[in-house]
Amino acid sequence: MRKFKEKLSERIFFALALSSISVLALITLFIFIKGVPLIAEVGAFKFIFGMSWAPGRGEFGIFPMIIGSVSVTLGAAVLGIPVGICCSIFMAEFAPVWMRNIFRPAIQLLAGIPSVVYGFWGLLFVVPAIRNYLGGPGLSILAGSVILAIMILPTIISISEVSLLALPRHYKEGALALGMTHWQTIRSVQLPAAKSGIVAAVILGIGRAIGETMAVIMVLGNSVAVPQSVLDPVRTLTTNIGIEMGYASGGHQQALFATGIVLFVIIMALNVSAQYITRRKIK
């Protein structure tokens, strides 16, 4: 009976694990089945590097959107990562307890707010501010980057903070005992020791930024063109799907799935490299 239960419990856990991950295969399979025929028809090179997206005329080129995704994500990373790491240092080291008790739930709340609300807030405040002070239409790469930077903050802050707090106390005490200032200790002992966690946080944050759809739909302007400056409107891979999926059919719908394939491949490449980096760190 005990033996049986033992075997059974392991089998059940294994079955659950197996079915959880089989959805990855399922997702890959179905999105590729739906999208690959169109890529084959248009030609992979023309699809990825084509400059013209005109579903009505059967022209499917997504290069401007790839540029859009990359530029908005880069912008979000440039704005969000330093701020996020700063905040995690603040929470793990500098903040007094009462401040921490406000900050932590606040960051939790920030993580839970629907992305559409961020997008809407950006539309009402960030977009007009950019239009009035920096020029251009306001709906722009910059607006999207600002919104995404705010949205990836909770991910970066919470994971970095955890990895800072998880360090053994004697690291810090040892350094302080050598007469270092608090900041010297953070810079030369704690940040390097927590590096792998912080890198993981950054990669996860970037992944979130590339994948975000609804918030950026509202603030990017969504025009299909290669942007000339950060004040130009762009369309990303995700927003392309989000905007047109509602009414697309036939080849057009297939093209959106093909866009999904490109997004999927980019994300998977990012995942694999992230896993490779963290695994090497462990060894």
Binding site: I31, I210, G211, I241, G260, F264, I267
Partner: peptide, 10 residues
Amino acid sequence: GIPSIVYGLF
């Protein structure tokens, strides 16, 4: 890491 819109497509 998969974006929610891809989950939506699937």
